[in-house]
């Protein structure tokens, strides 16, 4: 299972890098959100996928089938942060598009203002 997950994560990273390297700003934003999802999935996999019982102390749950709660808690935090950053980035991209009249990164090179 871990192997399959690792391959899937690798593919996600690949797609994310491809999108981030494209010229259109909106594709870049999709790429960054894909990148953070891949990172979160990686965290989940690295924490170990064993354990099917919820991480709550109750009857019939032994240490062996108890899911590790820490990666879940940390990923939840990371997801919230990624959500906030992505939405900020979207607003920024929208404003930048209005202000600069383009979403093409080729034209957003900042070389004319300073040497």
């Amino acid at each position: 299972m871990e192997i399959i997950m690792s391959v899937a994560i690798g593919l996600m990273f690949m797609a994310a890098v491809y999108l981030i390297l494209s010229k259109s700003l909106i594709r870049i934003i999709i790429g960054t959100s894909l990148l953070s999802h891949a990172a979160h999935l990686l965290f989940l996999t690295m924490g170990g996928l064993g354990g099917i019982a919820p991480p709550v102390v109750s009857d019939g749950v032994t240490v062996n089938d108890y899911a590790d709660p820490l990666p879940q808690a940390l990923i939840l935090t990371a997801i919230v942060i990624a959500f906030a950053v992505t939405s900020f980035f979207l607003v920024l991209a929208y404003r930048a598009y209005q202000e600069l009249g383009t979403d093409n990164m080729e034209q957003l090179r900042g070389t004319e203002d300073y040497e």
Binding site: L35, I81, A93, A96, E99
Partner: peptide, 29 residues
């Protein structure tokens, strides 16, 4: 110019944050 530069700043930092999560994941495992 702020708009233009901040896009790059945000992008670089999002990528480094994703790497941060990856590094933390490895360390945890």
């Amino acid at each position: 110019s702020q708009m233009r530069e901040s896009i790059k700043y945000v992008l670089v930092n999002i990528i480094s944050s994703a790497l941060f999560v990856v590094a933390v994941a490895y360390l945890y495992s």
